[in-house]
Design a binder for these strands. Structure first.
Lengths: 170, 170
DNA sequence: GAATTGTCTTGAATTACTCAAAACAAATGC
DNA sequence: GCATTTGTTTTGAGTAATTCAAGACAATTC
């Protein structure tokens, strides 16, 4: 299947996007390859994804790609500072394109959705521990844990149903 | 081999300690078993240890114990709120007895040593993100990354040696 | 002291990830 | 353009940390 250039309204945008991906990869000192472009596009569409989810997205547009290639791409991107890797407890590593701004994350304990949150207090928030114990502190990583809005609703309605059942079965 | 009670100065202390371990386990609603006592003792001696390190320590005093038993003990202790599990990025899960005080951790990026640090700012420090995005925030986990005092010295002297080599080989 | 309940041992399986060698493709120099 | 160099991907295997399951066993309860 071939695609005529500028065949629809999105073509221009898509091409501009592709060029920006290419530029990012190239200026990170890495060779521009199809798997790399595909991973970068997938990561733009679905931030906070793990290697396996990205592999799925990449494979959709580039069938021959291996999972190891995705790991390789993510590794080189992370080393190059093109993507950031986070590892919330109990989760495989997640990746995002938002780098260099020291933002943090909030994770739902029920559905595992992840969102970005900006620095907690003032500018460089938790970067100063009460006592650094002689450490030369380079980074502070904050993860908030809680229930997302949807899961609050879901659990509330579950409790509701449960209490109704209690009443219904004396 | 048998051990006479109160045969040395440490015996009284050791017994008191054993009783406190027993009490902790019992009041957490768990059965008191030899592997559990051994894990709790090991964890007291070496906080921020992983399952494998604890297994090693436990096995020293209680040879028949299996690694799976250690995982089981740690799992039930964690569920019961008797120990806290932390998972710094790139590390297997670490365990500690200090629970319920919402303290944080500082990890050396070179030697992986972990220390406790108290809350960063004020009382409930980073517990309030700038924008919780509708989440019901229950916990904030902060990990500081940096070089410990010893590793600062080590890397400094290495740089020193390297520059000396540079000068020595023109 | 027997019954009940929960825990431990043994053995296997799973998940997430890494390593290595050969095939291949992108950038570089001619 | 085409060959070379360098870096990347594929294929296949391997590892670390952890979990699952069945039966044996031990701690509490009655």
């Amino acid at each position: 299947m071939t695609m005529t250039d500028s065949s629809n309204d999105h073509a221009g945008l898509r091409q501009a996007e592709a060029e920006s991906f290419e530029g990012s990869i190239r200026s990170a000192g890495l060779k521009v390859t199809a798997p790399r472009l595909a991973v970068l596009r997938a990561l733009t569409d679905m931030p906070h994804s793990n290697a396996d989810a990205l592999f799925g997205a990449v494979r959709a547009g580039l069938p021959g790609t291996s999972l190891q290639a995705v790991y390789g791409v993510l590794g080189s991107f992370t080393t190059a500072g093109l993507v950031r890797r986070i590892e919330p407890a109990g989760s495989p590593a997640l990746f995002e394109r938002r780098v260099g701004d020291n933002h943090h994350h909030i994770v739902c304990t029920r559905c595992n959705v992840v969102h970005d949150v900006d620095c907690a207090v003032g500018h460089a928030p938790c970067l100063t521990p009460s006592d650094a114990l002689g450490f030369d502190v380079r980074a502070a990583e904050v993860i908030y844990w809680g229930l997302c809005a949807q899961c609050q609703l879901d659990t509330a309605s579950q409790l509701d149903t449960a209490s109704q059942l209690d009443t219904a079965t004396p």
